[in-house]
Computed example of a mutant assay.
Amino acid sequence: MSFEHNFTTTGNVNGPALSAVLALETVTAFIANTVVLSITLYQRKSWKQSSTIFFTSLILSHLVMVFLYLPLCVIAVAAEEWIFGSTFEQQIATCSFAAYVIWYCVLVIQMTLAIISFDRFLFIVKPRIHKRLMRPWTALAFTIGIWILAAILNSGPFVGLGEYEYDDTYGSCVPLWQGNNGYVLYMLIISMISITIILITSIWTFCFTRRFINDQSQVSGDSVYVSRKKRLFGIFGSMLLVYGICFLPSIISGGITTVVILPDPVYAVNMVTFQFITVASPLVQSYFRPDIKAAIISFFALFAPALKKWQGLTSRSHETSTSLPA
C-alpha cells in the first residue's frame, strides 16, 4: 500500500462544498436505485427475462457504492482528512477497504455491460440460441460469476500488484495509478476485454437490426419500420452513453496522471461526474424498461385524483378569500 501522506488534504479544494454535492448525489442515487430495485423485485414476471437480472446487477453495484463507499467519501471530504481509524494502521485498513470497494464496483459494471451486450446480441441475432442458453438461472449464474470474478481480479493490491492511496487532492481513497505501470496495464487489459465484447456484439446487433428493418420497410412500405430505426439506440445505447460521459473524464485524467500531475480541482470534478452514474443509470432504466415505467406511471396515477381535489379546494379557497369585502 502507498500512504505517503498524513491523511489530510492539500486544501486546494473546498471540501465542504464538494461534500455537499457528493451527499446530494448519494441521497438521489439511494432513492433512484431503491425505487428501481423495489419495482423489479415486485414485478415477478420480469424475472423470466435474462436482461432483468443483468440490469438488476447494475443497480446492486450502484447500491454497494452508495452504502459502502460514498458515505465514507462524503464525511472524509467534508472533514478534509481521513478520520476513519484511531491509529495509522486502522486508517490504512479503512482507506484500503474504500478504494477496493470503488474499483470493485467499476469492474462489476464493466463486466455486466459486456454480458448485457452479449445477451442483446443473442436475443436479436441468434434468438434460438438465446432461448436455450439465456434462461433465468443461467443469467443468474453469469451474474454471480461476474461478482466473484471481479472480486478476484480486484485483489491485486493485496498480493503486490498495484497499490491504494489516500488522494489528498480532495480527500478520498482510490487505486494509485501514477508509477504503477504494471497495475495500469493489468486493469487496461481487463477493461479492453469488456470493451471489445461490447463493441463487437453491439456493432453486429446494430447492423443486423438495421438491415432487417430496411428489408422489411422496402417489402411492406410500412412507415412503422422507419420509426423503429430511431429506437435502435434503445436502453443499452443510452446506458453506454451515460456511462461513457460519466467515466470518460476520470479515464482521461488517469491516463494523463501517469505522466503529469493535474490541478487538484480536476480530480474533484472527476469524482462528481464519476459518481453521477449512480443517479443516471437507474433513471435510464426507469425511462426505457416497460415494467419500471408502467409501475411508476401507475403509482403517480393513484395520487392524481387526490392532487386534483386538493388543487380544486385550494382554488375555491383562494376565490372565496378574494371575493370577501375588505
Rank of each mutant, 00 (worst) to 15 (best):
R231Q: 10
R231G: 01
F233Q: 08
G234A: 11
G234L: 05
I235H: 06
G237I: 07
S238G: 11
S238A: 14
M239A: 10
M239P: 00
M239S: 10
L241T: 13
V242S: 07
Y243V: 13
Y243F: 12
C246L: 06
C246D: 09
P249M: 03
S250N: 09
S250D: 10
I251G: 03
I251A: 12
I251L: 13
I251M: 12
I251E: 06
I251R: 02
I252E: 02
I252K: 02
S253W: 03
G254W: 14
G254T: 10
G255I: 08
I256V: 13
I256A: 03
I256K: 01
T257V: 14
T258I: 11
V259L: 12
V259A: 14
V260W: 09
V260S: 10
I261Q: 13
L262S: 07
P263I: 01
P265W: 02
V266A: 02
A268N: 05
V269K: 00
N270Q: 09
N270A: 02
N270F: 00
M271C: 08
M271E: 14
M271N: 12
V272N: 02
V272A: 08
Q275H: 11
F276G: 13
F276L: 15
F276I: 08
F276R: 06
I277L: 14
V279F: 13
A280C: 13
S281F: 06
S281Y: 07
P282E: 09
P282S: 05
L283M: 13
L283P: 08
L283T: 06
V284P: 06
V284Q: 06
S286P: 05
S286L: 11
Y287I: 15
Y287A: 12
Y287E: 05
R289S: 14
R289M: 15
R289K: 08
P290V: 01
D291V: 03
I292L: 15
I292T: 12
K293H: 14
K293I: 01
A294P: 11
A294M: 04
A295G: 08
I296N: 03
I297S: 11
S298Y: 01
F299M: 05
F300R: 11
A301V: 01
L302K: 14
L302I: 09
L302R: 12
F303N: 04
F303R: 04
A304K: 13
P305W: 05
A306I: 00
A306D: 07
L307E: 02
K308V: 08
K308E: 10
W310N: 10
W310E: 07
W310Q: 11
W310I: 01
